[in-house]
Amino acid sequence: MEEFIDKFNYVLVVILMMTGLWSMLAQNNLIKKCIGMAIFQTGIILFFISIGAKNNALIPILTETANHTYNDPNVNEVTNPLTQILMLTAIVVGVATLGVGLALAQKVHQQNDSFDEDEILNNQTK
């Protein structure tokens, strides 16, 4: 149980990702699919942030001393900056994908007057 509580953010990651994946695959509504996609990506972002985090760690900023030299930070006292930077990129990608997805859903709605996948398929095969 203690281990479970220790790693509770990873449990949350799994729950988020499964919710998102289920919504992407099983929902009929195009907008709900887009929401599922956003939740799925959020789960992955949380995963990456979790693996870079450390107990009682500070933000990874070098402190300047005299003569313009920088203190080498103690790596045990700062979080891993790389995962955070990677996720900045992933967030940008996620926003762009969501934007394109919603734009396509809007176009489909203009044509078929519906967001429901079954109805759209019926319309198109007619």
Binding site: M24, L30, K33, M37, F40, T97, G101, L104, V108
Partner: peptide
């Protein structure tokens, strides 16, 4: 749209 879902 389907490609987008699968690709993402």
């Amino acid at each position: 749209f389907n490609y987008l879902m699968m690709g993402t």
